[in-house]
Amino acid sequence: MPTKTYLQAINEALRQEMERDPDVFIMGEDVGPFGGCFGVTKGLYEQFGEKRVKDTPITESAIIGAATGAAAAGLRPVCEIMFVDFIGVALDQLFNQAAKMRYMFGGKAKIPMVLRTPQGAGIGAAAQHSQSLEAWFAHVPGLKVAMPATPYDAKGLLITAIRDDNPVVFLEHKLLYGLEGDVPDEPYTVPFGKAQVHREGTDVTIVATAKMLHTSLEAADVLAKDGMSAEVIDPRTLVPFDTDTIVESVKKTHGLVVVHEAVKHAGFGAEIAAQVAELAFDYLDGPIVRVAAPFTPVPFSPPLEQAYIPGVDDVVTAVKKIRA
């Protein structure tokens, strides 16, 4: 299978879906001739022209508002918000319009739009360019939320998102853009609501998304050297959420650690812990531990930023804590 980066996989998904369906178009800040702030939309403007790859003014609210309108009128927009941190200025369009229109019109309006946006820390971009805000989107009924961790999932989940008739928030981790992996050349889909077990194990279940999946897999290697066998699961989408795979895993391992890069307080790890504590209560033989960022903005100082992002040691320590 050909090897591609996470960024190339996303670019290929966009290109192939635009070739397949003339209703698919792209809009966002600098997505045109410039190819996107991170280069995700590179080459699409040249191939599809300015009618289907639209550079917008710097106004997130208008981007999402226009995408919602275009989707309601029958197109399939894929809009880019340059950093998830800028979404604050557009939340009304997303939460009160895009997420609700299908419901408000009794199913007569469909909003087949995708909002792509990079999140995550680790490039010294400080408090307004480094956050992980998935918990907000996941708490809004009417939105689907995808968080790919691998190049394969990035392409397959994005194609699923574009073909979905509902608004999808597609969260890319900016530190994964350069990650390489096997990605088929032909188009394919990865279903929403289906977690992937990346490593099987018997002693503890670790649930992690995006970049934290890789941190957790490294931690599992370290734990293996200490004779502990960790099962590592990536839910891939937060809405819909594959509770069953995680609950089944916990029934086998009897322990759960949830790892995410967003701040711990009121983060999505809380929902997973709550669901598992409800559905697999009798199988747990110790507390559920969450490894996540502290409740502060993302620091600019590189040493502080590294201390802020959960690392391999943090995951290992958490597992050892519940297995002590």
């Binding site: 708490h139 009924p141 812990a273 559920i288």
Partner: peptide
């Protein structure tokens, strides 16, 4: 508030961490 990812989840998560036994 809606249940998924709501404030209740944070409370349950703290309980299963701090009062599990």
């Amino acid at each position: 508030a809606p249940r998924s990812y709501g404030p209740g989840a944070e409370i349950v998560a703290r309980l299963v961490e701090k009062a599990f036994y």
